[in-house]
């Protein structure tokens, strides 16, 4: 019993520490990768491979003046950036990094994740609203519309996986992929979830709430110092979260040939998707806000529903057949 509790605490602290180290590290990774793809060097001076730029960036954020504009709604302004970090970090609670390495194996894990990512939308809306700035307001408005719409497909696109594994627990979903990764039977679900995931993390090409060339910095125009840092880290945590989810739901989580330990397989897969996120940012332009919504409601939603119905029918048909035998 004692040992169990200790173990649990270790896992919790380990996951938290891991996330908080890797998330800022992604700043370096992203800048180096973008530079690689854009024929330039990127940060390569501080420390080996320029890795110390992470430290420099973090220190800079800590020492910047923590300014709250006089026209802002102070309380909300302060709370908003915290919400994004808290909700994303909480989502990681249900992710199984390896057999047994999970903070809380909830039997409603997937629903918990969806709930938390919906909560994350508040961060953008409140941040943009509290800033009392027109650019921030426009960004927040776009963000709210985008997140709420894409939430719908995100949830629905996962239902195929849930049907096939018969559980909302991520641990069970991963175990159900022993025979075949769900990306094969649920390919459509995977594509839709990935698109919705990019929209959820509002990364290019769906960085419409920020849209630098139009809205300067969108919903976080007025933020500086560590409050901006929270949004920044929150975004990278979001990227990791979506990568983890894709890994768990469609690519068999920690499953992989035995020559590497399960957790390493998980990390490899997760980073593959982080690379994909960065590659997308390097290559695609940004659609217009109404085009994004149109794409969501007119194309993704019907596709998701079709996917769900086909999966359900297929499963029912098989069940009846096996009962018949």
């Amino acid at each position: 019993m004692q040992n169990d509790t200790l173990n649990h605490i270790l896992i919790t602290v380990g996951v938290l520490a891991g996330l908080l180290i890797v998330a800022p590290g992604l700043i370096w990774l992203e800048r180096r990768l973008l530079a690689l793809w854009q024929d330039r060097y990127g940060p390569n001076r501080a420390g080996p491979f320029g890795l110390m730029v992470v430290l420099a960036d973090t220190l800079k954020l800590f020492f910047k003046e923590d300014w709250i504009p006089p026209f802002a709604d102070k309380k909300v302004f302060v709370i908003a950036p915290a919400i994004v970090v808290i909700t994303v970090l909480l989502s990681f609670v249900v992710i199984p990094f390896a057999p047994g390495v999970i903070v809380a194996d909830l039997n409603i894990g997937l629903l918990f994740f969806l709930a938390m990512s919906s909560m994350g939308a508040y961060s953008i809306i409140l941040g943009g609203w509290a800033s009392n700035n027109k650019y921030a307001l426009l960004g927040a408005m776009r963000g709210a519309a985008q997140l709420i719409s894409y939430e719908v497909f995100m949830g629905l696109s996962l239902m195929g996986v849930v049907l096939m594994s018969g559980s909302f627990s991520l641990h069970k979903i991963v175990e159900a992929q022993q025979g075949m990764w769900f990306v094969v039977p649920q390919f459509l679900g995977f594509v839709i979830f990935l698109i919705a995931g990019i929209a959820e993390t509002h990364r290019l090409p769906f960085d419409i709430p920020e849209a630098e060339s139009e809205l300067v910095a969108g919903f976080h125009s007025e933020y500086s110092g560590m409050k901006f840092g929270m949004f920044f880290v929150g975004e990278y945590l979001g990227v990791m979260l979506i990568s983890c989810m894709v890994t768990c739901l469609f690519f068999g989580g920690w499953l992989g040939p035995g020559f590497l330990p399960p957790v390493v397989w998980f990390i490899i897969k997760m980073f593959a998707f982080i690379f994909l996120f960065i590659l997308l940012r390097a290559s695609l332009p940004r659609p217009r806000y109404d085009q994004l919504m149109e794409f969501g409601w007119k194309i993704l939603l019907p596709l998701t529903l079709v996917n769900l119905m086909v999966t359900a029918t297929w499963l029912l048909y098989h069940e009846q057949n096996s009962v018949g035998h």
Partner: peptide
């Protein structure tokens, strides 16, 4: 770049 495409401007 105005349309959100980051890389072409570097090339």
């Amino acid at each position: 770049q105005d349309l959100g495409q980051l890389s072409p401007v570097f090339y």
